[in-house]
């Protein structure tokens, strides 16, 4: 079959659109741009906008907490209350899911939650860069968590950790079917964990990008409509940013709990 005429027509239209009208490119702001190429011994540690915003997130999280706790009082002020609420929130999450043995993971999970949360939120500032919209960033975090869960499982249970893939109370005849499924679902964990966060951020920002494009290019008579939507959607994104950070963290807790206590 030859669809070349369609493509040709499309290409032609694309050319005219590209030359005459402003081009809609909602994926533009996910572009990672290297500001400074640093590759000592072929090891890539270049500074890009993504890296810059990671630093900003680190600075913002640390700065806010330091500001909130600069002179802690027994009766807390507003900012201190918020900081304490965040502390107790993460603590409660760990306690609910992992239990008392989850205490030693508290700093890591606390950091994870606030790193992801503030990555999601700082990305909403116009002109900024959303670190968590990068698959490789969420993938790195997810892989660290995945590796940690395997190491913890091996540390706590040794070879018995392989029993993780054998569901309880299963007739032996079903084992050849179920064990591969369990293994695949286990391996899918880091993928789903990272893709969920990255896709949420990407989709939300893409929608915002499209709406802003319309707001900027349409005449004022209709531009108020997409503009109103951007307002609503930004609020929605703030909410989603929190929910996704929460889910990322809570699933981390679940995975760690599975490794420590098995099921």
């Amino acid at each position: 079959m030859n669809f070349s005429f369609v493509a040709e027509a499309y290409a032609e239209t694309a050319q005219t659109v590209a030359t005459t009208a402003p081009k809609m490119d909602p994926l533009h702001h996910f572009q990672v741009i290297n500001y400074l190429k640093i590759t000592p011994f072929g090891f890539d540690m270049s500074i890009s906008n993504s890296v810059l915003w990671m630093w900003i997130v680190v600075g913002v999280v640390y700065g806010l907490f330091r500001l909130a706790m600069r002179n802690p009082t027994l009766v807390p002020g507003r900012l201190q209350s918020v900081a304490e609420a965040g502390y107790l929130f993460v603590q409660g999450m760990i306690h609910d899911i992992i239990g008392p043995s989850g205490k030693k993971f508290f700093p890591a999970i606390f950091t994870l939650f606030f790193f992801v949360l503030f990555s999601n939120w700082t990305g909403l500032i116009p002109g900024s860069f959303t670190v968590t919209s990068q698959l490789i960033v969420t993938g790195t975090l997810a892989l660290i968590i995945f590796a940690l869960s395997i190491v913890l499982g091996a540390y706590h249970h040794g070879w018995k950790f392989l029993g993780f893939f054998v569901p309880h109370g299963l007739p032996p005849a079903l084992l050849p079917l179920m064990v591969p499924i369990e293994i695949i679902s286990f391996l899918a964990r880091p993928v789903s964990l990272s893709v969920r966060l990255f896709a949420n951020m990407t989709a939300g920002h893409t929608v915002l990008g499209v709406l802003f494009f319309f707001t900027a290019t349409l005449t004022w008579a209709v531009a108020w409509l997409p503009f109103g939507f951007t307002v609503v959607f930004t609020a929605m994104e703030i909410f989603i940013g929190f929910i996704q950070a929460y889910i990322f963290t809570i699933l981390t807790c679940v995975y760690i709990n599975d490794s420590i206590h098995m099921h």
Partner: peptide
């Protein structure tokens, strides 16, 4: 092409 530096800096930042 930009994966390497981001992996590195994610780990470092975290």
């Amino acid at each position: 092409s930009v994966f390497g530096s981001q992996i590195f800096w994610t780990v470092v930042s975290f």
